[in-house]
Nucleic acid binder design. Structure first.
Lengths: 156, 156
DNA sequence: TCTATTACGTACCAGTTTGGTACGAATTGG
DNA sequence: CCAATTCGTACCAAACTGGTACGTAATAGA
């Protein structure tokens, strides 16, 4: 199962790329080329980020985007939420009223604890941290071919 | 955004329900009625759980399903993985080879730490724990209308 | 001040995945 | 031998995601 949508993944890549050059104002086309992402999709992601106030947009001939706040003050959770909406484990976590089993479902109250753990994991990492070498976060190999490591896959 | 698929959510509900009556062998139709879930969907979920070895299926006239292991020895993560597959934050977490940006994408190594946090959050909760009152896990209100609480929603 | 260039923002369309259903094959107890 | 029950496969519909195209707004230069 994949937790993050492609767009949310792109959003983190784009935001991190912006964080790498804080003072620069860059347009969507250039950003797309530098990140190797489709131009139109990048524009769509940037729009969502701008709407959430994470990046500021300047129009006109010399316009472009830049981060609205320092990279240390923007968490991955914010970027993901800007694109995919609030984070919730189950349907009833986000739309409580839609669940017909509200009165007797025994499992529902327990999701909140797991929900919180996920949210905190995403909130704990800032864009700035995404730029630092991975080794600073955990003992992750920086080998050229990280697929040798099992770190990226979680198996029960 | 919703992290768990509906089927995975159903899977936890069904597995928890089975855990509530450990010795009983029950068929899919009865299980569907008791959980208020569509019969055909329950059968599909049970098939996935049986395939993963979490429940044992008995065929024939007096057949049915039961947990293959004690409820304390089955984690929510296993149930989810049985239905939705391995847990991964991003596409490249599960299918590393599919990512064309492998060589220069700076964000990828960092996902593993978040991945691990999510996996541990799901692994830490057993089916047995899902049956105990929520208050034992965190200070969650047990009021008849839990929607009054904000615990279920995570906002950045 | 006008015009042309540049880029943002919105609306629309196609593909894929997920959720749900129905039918047939196999197995066991009476 | 028959009936009941489950497993397994194949199929269909709906929702969502991803991608594209077009219109609108703003600025720089003349």
């Amino acid at each position: 199962m994949i937790i993050l949508s492609k767009l949310a993944d792109y959003g983190v890549i784009i935001a991190t790329h912006l964080a790498a050059f804080p003072a620069r104002q860059v347009n969507a086309t250039t950003l797309a080329a530098e990140t190797r992402l489709p131009q139109a999709t990048v524009a769509k992601v940037l729009k969502a980020l701008a709407h959430a106030g994470l990046v500021s947009a300047a129009r006109g001939a010399t316009g472009g985007y830049r981060l609205a706040r320092p990279a240390t003050a923007i968490s991955v959770a914010e970027v993901v939420a800007a694109i995919d909406g609030d984070i919730g484990l189950t349907q009833c976590s986000v739309h409580v009223e839609d669940c017909a089993r509200t009165t007797y479902c025994p499992t529902r109250p327990h999701w909140s604890a797991i929900n919180r753990a996920v949210g905190e994991a995403l909130s704990a990492v800032s864009l700035d941290a995404m730029l630092t070498p991975a080794a600073f976060i955990r003992g992750i190999s920086l080998s050229p071919n990280p697929s040798q490591s099992d770190e990226h896959r979680f198996s029960a």
